[in-house]
Amino acid sequence: MREEFGGGSKARRRYVAIGDSFTEGVGDPSKVLPNGVRGWADRVAEKLAKAQPGWEYANLAVRSKRLRHVIDEQLEPAMAMEPTLITLYAGGNDILDFGTDMDALLKDYELLVARLSETGATLVLFTGFDVKVSAVLEPFKKRNTLYNQRVRDIAAKYGAILVDYWCFDAYKDSRMWAPDRLHMSKAGHKYLAAQVLDNLNVPHKISPKEWDPPTRMSMREWERRQRRWVNDWVVPLFGRKLRGVTLGDSISPRWPEPVKVPRKGGLKKLMEDRETTQ
């Protein structure tokens, strides 16, 4: 584990995650955890606590949030928590918006990183994955490429740890993705948690999912699945964009205040203890 996470048995250890659905945990369902999801950040928090007792964890990320929302709604609360570790992914929803000014977006992204770096916390940033879902989304590829280039530069400039999500070949397997093809599946979230922990030099036993090779589908089956995906996910997505509404409008952060993560049982144990005391 990196030295900044050590600091003796009485050192404060506080992990704050900010961002959008990527960090909230969408695609990794849970019946017992807040907002009905788990995600990679919860797993990272649990492994931190297992490696060194005393870790606290807050997750302010909310699905559908744009970069401006993260800045306006999450930045100040995150800084007020005096974190020792911060993870940030934001901007992916902006990339999919009509008319996004990428230069302005990335300027605001750097200003956000600069503010977070003032805390002295270890800062973890992410590139975005080039999701091969459909020709429908190909026009956004150049934006994603530009975003990734700038995030790499900004991470180097501010001494942040970079998790280069774009480079992970494991995500070329469709089983790493949820049915909407834009969010990671449970296996995808577990794999990313392992990558973050590896970059932090935190011990863990999360291992990649081992699957048999995917079966080849017929053209008819492929076309049927494409139509279903467009009808179930793409049309509603762009419909919400046209109406100016998002799935996160009525959602609150999952862990809005730092909670002490149990070394055994993790966050599920925390929820069970809460239920017994109510």
Score class of each variant (00 low, 15 high):
L60Q: 02
K186H: 04
Q149P: 00
D164C: 05
L112T: 03
L111E: 15
T122F: 04
E118W: 06
D273V: 07
T122E: 15
W55H: 02
R13P: 03
Y15L: 08
R143M: 10
P262M: 09
E4H: 06
L123V: 10
R38E: 01
D153P: 00
L88E: 09
K50Y: 07
R66K: 12
L116M: 08
P208A: 08
P83I: 04
T277W: 01
E272K: 02
K264V: 00
R254Q: 12
A11Q: 14
M219K: 13
T276F: 00
E4R: 09
Q74R: 06
P256C: 08
L48H: 02
E76F: 07
P213D: 14
T87K: 09
L60S: 05
E82T: 03
D180V: 00
A51E: 10
M81I: 05
S117R: 15
G239A: 13
H204T: 09
A49L: 07
R152F: 00
G188F: 03
I95L: 15
Q278A: 12
D180L: 02
Y147L: 15
M81C: 02
R12M: 11
L123Y: 01
W177N: 04
Y57H: 01
G188H: 10
E3F: 08
P258N: 04
A17N: 08
E73C: 07
R224C: 07
P208E: 13
S185N: 10
L182I: 05
R254Y: 01
G244I: 13
T122R: 14
A170P: 01
G39D: 09
V26F: 10
K31Y: 05
N144Y: 11
G8A: 12
D249L: 04
A187E: 13
D72T: 06
A104M: 11
L105D: 00
P83K: 10
W211H: 14
L146C: 11
F5A: 05
E223V: 10
A156Y: 03
W229V: 08
A114N: 11
V133H: 09
I86W: 02
G6E: 14
N199E: 12
L112A: 05
Y89K: 09
L60H: 00
G27L: 04
Q74N: 03
V235H: 13
W40G: 05
K157F: 10
E272C: 08
